[in-house]
Simulated scan of single mutants.
Amino acid sequence: MPPWQQEQASHAVSLYFDLSPALPGSVPASVSTSAVRGPAPATNSTPPQVSEPAASTGASWREEFTSLTQEIKIRHYSPKTLDTYKLWLRKFQAFVRSKPPELLTATDVKEFLTWLAVKRQVAASTQNQAFNALLFFFRHVLHREFGKVEGVVRAKRRPYIPVVLNREEIEAVLARLEPPYNLVVKLLYGCGLRLFECLNLRVQSLNFDAGIITVHDGKGQKDRTVPLPKAILPAMRVQIDALKILHQRDLTRKYAGVFLMNALDEKYPNAAREFVWQWIFPAKDLTRVPETGEYRRYHLHETQVQKAIRKAVAEAQLCKRATAHTFRHSFASHLLGANYDIRTIQELLGHSDLKTTMIYTHTVKSSTIKEARSPLDF
């Protein structure tokens, strides 16, 4: 390796040990990195301009991350919220050069948010997400208020009009999807489900007699019911029959069951192996739990569905940027276009605020306002 790469590696390792003082075998400051590396080979490489890393304080923030996890779980927030808040806390920690948490001030927050907006040019929603994560961290982990963060204005989100597919475009995508992805998309469009709500469906969520699907622990830990489309009833029954065969095979292999949320495993020890708790869309392979060594089954992963949808949209050569959430947008817009009441659509989507549902009024033609035309068409 050229000398500049050796020097860069030396800085990286030294910074790592500086940030983790509790690690055993820390490199003494008296050890010369050049002595460890040995003589540098002859090279004609020109080293790039590498800035010197700032001096580290050695604050690890381990207790703060542990407290953040506990505070999130106490409030029963979703695992995604925990992952997002931990991600922003890591970025904030790196920004302040691992400054001890007790020395953090509103000025640090102001500089971080300003850096996100000016240097990184993040979207308004991303900036607000970072603000909310740090606000939670200050209030519930550090137990002190932000106060006024002077000079930093909460980013205002621009009005967003969702992408909506017509029926021909939806059929074109469905025709290019293989099972079980085509059934997943039919539920997204036919029931207005979010992707994670669809993949979290279990056998007990289906009620064929009443023709409804019960969505448990949706966004905001809320439950709701949506109509089960009659058009997919035969496909859903075929899926259930296939699940019975898979479940019996798993029981023969003496697997530990499916993954259950919270402490249901302790409350109902046999629930994980019962058929009613099985996923509607199970993963292809079993997952090994490192702590216990047992094998459990998870549901189909979101990235697999998203990848299949991207491929189908590309093959259909749509002129719209369609994702898994686009089918939920299409569900709401098509109901509104069919003169369904906006409050009914709000209940079906599981929105807490009617303002969120009102965005779909921009995706359909109004029957009361004269349709705008281009003068070129007069």
Results as ranks from 00 to 15, higher is better:
residue 1 M to Y: 08
residue 2 P to A: 14
residue 2 P to M: 05
residue 3 P to W: 02
residue 4 W to G: 02
residue 6 Q to C: 11
residue 8 Q to D: 14
residue 12 A to V: 15
residue 13 V to W: 10
residue 15 L to A: 14
residue 15 L to K: 10
residue 16 Y to I: 05
residue 17 F to P: 03
residue 18 D to Y: 07
residue 22 A to E: 15
residue 24 P to V: 08
residue 30 S to P: 13
residue 34 S to A: 15
residue 35 A to E: 14
residue 40 A to Y: 09
residue 40 A to W: 08
residue 43 T to N: 06
residue 44 N to Q: 15
residue 46 T to Y: 13
residue 48 P to H: 12
residue 49 Q to P: 06
residue 54 A to E: 12
residue 57 T to S: 13
residue 60 S to M: 11
residue 61 W to I: 04
residue 62 R to N: 13
residue 65 F to S: 05
residue 71 E to P: 03
residue 79 P to M: 00
residue 81 T to I: 03
residue 82 L to H: 05
residue 85 Y to N: 03
residue 85 Y to R: 12
residue 94 A to W: 11
residue 99 K to Y: 01
residue 101 P to N: 04
residue 110 K to H: 12
residue 111 E to H: 13
residue 111 E to P: 00
residue 115 W to I: 07
residue 115 W to C: 13
residue 116 L to E: 00
residue 122 V to S: 02
residue 126 T to L: 00
residue 127 Q to T: 03
residue 127 Q to F: 02
residue 141 V to P: 02
residue 143 H to M: 05
residue 144 R to G: 00
residue 144 R to H: 01
residue 146 F to S: 12
residue 147 G to N: 00
residue 150 E to F: 09
residue 152 V to I: 15
residue 152 V to A: 09
residue 157 R to F: 01
residue 160 Y to Q: 14
residue 161 I to C: 09
residue 163 V to K: 08
residue 165 L to A: 12
residue 171 E to F: 07
residue 174 L to I: 06
residue 175 A to K: 13
residue 175 A to P: 06
residue 175 A to R: 11
residue 178 E to K: 03
residue 180 P to Q: 02
residue 180 P to N: 02
residue 184 V to H: 06
residue 184 V to Y: 01
residue 185 V to F: 06
residue 185 V to M: 02
residue 187 L to D: 06
residue 191 C to S: 10
residue 195 L to H: 04
residue 196 F to Q: 15
residue 198 C to V: 06
residue 202 R to W: 07
residue 207 N to C: 08
residue 208 F to Q: 11
residue 211 G to D: 03
residue 212 I to S: 06
residue 215 V to E: 01
residue 225 T to V: 14
residue 230 K to W: 09
residue 238 V to L: 13
residue 246 L to T: 09
residue 250 D to I: 05
residue 250 D to L: 06
residue 251 L to G: 10
residue 272 A to C: 06
residue 273 R to D: 12
residue 275 F to S: 06
residue 275 F to L: 14
residue 279 W to M: 08
residue 286 L to I: 07
residue 289 V to L: 10
residue 290 P to R: 01
residue 292 T to S: 09
residue 292 T to R: 02
residue 293 G to L: 05
residue 295 Y to C: 14
residue 295 Y to M: 15
residue 297 R to C: 08
residue 298 Y to D: 10
residue 309 I to V: 09
residue 313 V to T: 03
residue 314 A to K: 15
residue 315 E to V: 12
residue 319 C to N: 14
residue 321 R to Q: 12
residue 322 A to V: 15
residue 330 S to Q: 04
residue 332 A to R: 02
residue 336 L to H: 03
residue 343 R to K: 08
residue 345 I to Y: 01
residue 351 H to R: 04
residue 356 T to W: 00
residue 359 I to R: 10
residue 361 T to L: 10
residue 365 K to S: 13
residue 365 K to C: 07
residue 368 T to E: 11
residue 370 K to N: 14
residue 374 S to C: 08
residue 374 S to I: 07
